[in-house]
Amino acid sequence: MKKMTLIILLLAFGVWAKAQKNEGEVTFKRTTSWTKMNDQMTFLSKQQKEKNAYMFGNIDISTQTYTLFFSPKGSKYEEKEENTNGYSWRKEQFVIYRDFENETLTDVIDFLGKTYIVEDSLERPQWKILNDIKDVAGHICMKAQIKDPIKNQVIVAWFAQDIKAKAGPERLWGLPGLILELDINNGACVISASKIEFKKLTTELDFPKKLKGSKIKEVRYQQMIEKHVKDKFKEEVNPFWSIRY
């Protein structure tokens, strides 16, 4: 009888442990290298790119910390408030909600000084699956890739083989495992998981009582980005100084 209880307990624990593996919180470090970003600026000559790398090559990195809450139902991704040096900057609004049950997205995004709420149905990104494997934060990940033609980005994602969740950092999702790392344009921006905590989520995925901002559709949001990128290229200014990379 005792043995039986133990087995049941073990089984229950096993089920619980398994259930826990697709729900929790991930801390991401988002690192941007401004001189690497220059490779994409077609208006800069090779000489200018080299010169910038020569002068700014090791002081051009900026790092931010983000949190991703994920469960089979959905996910929420936002910047973590940190003030380690006793000074606090106003955070850019970038809160990404994904509802996998109702297949909807609700993103609160600051864009050129205005706050928008992008609300639309979820469309799965067109991922390509590649053959490489790599370790990220203790999990073996497979490689996937996607292109963003509007921002002219090649994004490499590394998704965990053993965390069955569709969620991911930034606005990306839809792989057979949780995305633990994104590499945009060969290291110009790298978003990499530094800590993964499996736990039962309670209210983390809920919307705040009131979302402030003007509501737009995904298509409109992409159009705004496209216009901005085009304008700034015409001015020969890096468009990602003023919008998110």
Partner: peptide, 15 residues
Amino acid sequence: VRGHDAKLKKNGNMF
């Protein structure tokens, strides 16, 4: 050594 820029620069050199 690396050649000159063949186009006018709109915004100087920085980034």
